Amino acid sequence: MAHEVRAVVAPEKGAPVSVETIRVPDPGPGEALVEVRACGVCHTDMHYREGGVNNDFPFLLGHEAAGVVEATGADVTDVAPGDFVVLNWRAICGQCRACRRGDIEYCFATHNAGQKMTRADGSELSPALGIGAFAEKTLVAAGQCTRVDPRADPAVVGLLGCGVMAGMGAALNTAGVSRGDSVAVIGCGGVGDAAIAGSRLAGASRIIGVDVEDRKLRWAEGFGATHTVNSREQSPVEAIRELTEGNGTDVVIDAVGRPETYRQAFYARDLAGTLVLVGVPTPDMTIDLPLLDVFGRGGALKSSWYGDCLPSRDFPMLTDLYLQGRLDLEGFVSERIALDDVEEAFEKMHRGDVLRSVVVV
């Protein structure tokens, strides 16, 4: 039986989104039907709307979500109806070469639901990141559901499903920030501020936030930045060195993903330091660095996939820290909106007015 629900659809490249009635099938083997409670408005959704990911229009947008499992298909054992879950976009396969060697957070064959959700006319929808959660209900692979403490606010913990986890994981998992480390984060939007929060949680002694907007630098201070640098007004490399006795930081996290910020991150780290790229570049971007500098400065140049997270491990842990008052996830929620307000939320995001607008269903 198909479930008719309201949802946000991107009909064609660059066009405003529309709220439509869509059809969501009952779950088949390995699938779960989830009643969505809340879903964050992420830059990735805007990239889908603009055709920056692919051209498989129409898209069912939304992916930073939390909700309650309504039904499961055959062969599902990890979640059951009634479970409160955060959705993730990398359900692991357990069989690929990464999984077989124990690196399941790098699974090379992640998967989504096999059945398609459709518009009222029967045309198939492409769910953003295999989730499509700007909807009253969505269909996902059961492995995309991670159980967390049901006392948590869905509008808050749903953000673990993408941006917050990407930033925190870049610091905690990819960079391995540890007690006493110095860290610089370039780009203090949602992902960058999450990297700052993760660095603070790990015990970093000095955390430097870098951005071109003073408003975002104030946000960064709220999440734990001990120092801030406006890179419109001064060279971030020179400023970071001045704040670290001329050395540079142990870790630099590029949460922007542009050639110029990557170059800044490369030269702002200390010798043998670590650079982590978590900001997403566009396909046309390239980087040119002197190979002798790559060799001579040593250290590690890393890219962070989804914060190198393992949802079954990281989502419950971070949810518990939030409930204990040790992690300010609420601070990422700028406003709570309805499904009909997503297009306006994209405009606010484009202007830099919000960290996250969250659709409450």
Rank of each mutant, 00 (worst) to 15 (best):
C93N: 06
G190V: 07
E105Y: 07
R147H: 02
G102D: 08
A98F: 13
V183E: 07
R90G: 04
A91D: 13
T174V: 10
C107P: 09
S123Q: 14
A184D: 04
V86R: 05
D193K: 10
V185T: 12
A142N: 10
G102A: 05
R151I: 07
L125C: 04
D153I: 03
G102P: 04
K116A: 15
V191Y: 12
V157L: 00
Y106G: 01
I104F: 11
A152G: 06
D103M: 07
V86M: 09
N173R: 14
G132T: 09
V191G: 06
R100I: 01
S182A: 10
D103C: 02
H111G: 07
V86N: 02
N88P: 00
C96T: 05
V191T: 12
F134I: 00
A98M: 15
V148T: 09
G132H: 04
D103P: 01
L125Q: 05
A133F: 00
W89I: 02
F84N: 08
Q95T: 10
G130F: 05
A109G: 02
R97M: 05
G187E: 13
C162G: 10
E124R: 14
P81F: 07
G94I: 02
A141T: 02
I131S: 15
V177W: 15
S123C: 02
Q115I: 03
A152R: 09
A98V: 01
G169V: 14
L129E: 08
E136K: 12
C162R: 09
L172T: 06
D181R: 09
V148D: 03
V191E: 12
G102C: 10
T146M: 06
A142Q: 14
A109W: 08
A142C: 06
L159N: 04
D153P: 04
T138V: 09
G143E: 03
R100W: 01
C107K: 05
L87S: 13
D121W: 10
N88W: 00
I131F: 08
F108V: 06
D181W: 08
T174G: 14
